[in-house]
Design a binder for these strands. Structure first.
Lengths: 148, 148
DNA sequence: GTACGTGCAAAGAATTTGCAGATAA
DNA sequence: TTATCTGCAAATTCTTTGCACGTAC
């Protein structure tokens, strides 16, 4: 379904959004595109660091902030310990397992898709730019473990 | 609509939930009941501290954690700077203004109420205990300011 | 007296800031 | 050159932990 973006496609996306395609920015985008696991700043930094020895965490913070401001990626606050990131594609809800901490993508509830995701709309006089649905509970796998 | 709870009612709620009604716990509950503004730990501490000089922030953290674990209050992670708390029991969505940081209650989107709020249900094999909807954008008042 | 509750001080973790050097148009 | 981008170190903020004292049944 979702196909990984190649380097050229990522550069194009950055350019279209008025972002200079530095190596660091391309790398963060590429990482988020190929790892749909809602990584934290730390995970992204630790993953990229080996191949980019001079990379600093500050830069990862800077890049992520920039990408969020351009709506290329989404910031998730579902985990109260750390902020997570998700490359913006199709609208979906997020589920966090209270036991193992894993974050999963789930479909948006039915009959709501028209108002959810990244498009903007007015609600009670407020301008809504973003909608996030967070589910919290116990995941499939943890349920099995508990029953054993 | 929503009526403020008196001290006796709060004590009863705590007792029913197997919580010893200490002065600190009553005070935090009472504060959350009478201030439906989604306060942070700091705001609660700063508000109660003058009348309870020995109160410590650790205790506020402890009390809030306990109340959340008993589902008497809800923890909101809509603001990526700090965790917020809400005693409001009726199902509703939350909106945060990206400009002024204010958090407002908004109605749940239509045709969804049956699955949202605090009741549990299964979804894709996962056990959902909690559902939160977060809207982010620019509030009514900030929109007016911008247009001036 | 035993278990529980509270609160101080310290530790820990996540994020931001200030600034200097590197890079690119 | 002139802006922007990067990254180190330090600072800041939020939250948790360890532990000792207090309190209640």
């Amino acid at each position: 379904m979702t196909k990984s973006l190649n380097r050229e496609q990522i550069i194009k996306i950055l350019l279209v959004n008025d972002i200079k395609p530095s190596l660091q920015r391309i790398s963060v985008m590429q990482y988020l595109d190929s790892h749909r696991t809602h990584p934290s700043v730390d995970e992204i930094y630790n993953a990229l660091s080996p191949d980019m020895p001079t990379l600093s965490k500050t830069t990862v913070y800077n890049v992520l902030k920039l990408l969020v401001s351009k709506s290329l990626i989404q910031q998730l606050t579902i985990d109260d310990k750390k902020v997570l990131f998700d490359i913006n594609t199709e609208k979906h809800a997020h589920f966090i397992c209270k036991r193992c901490g894993k974050v999963l993508d789930l479909a948006m509830p039915k009959n709501e898709n028209e108002t959810y995701g990244t498009q903007s709309f007015m609600l009670d006089g407020n301008y809504i730019e973003e909608t996030q649905i967070y589910y919290k509970g116990i995941c499939n796998e943890c349920l099995k473990k508990i029953n054993n």
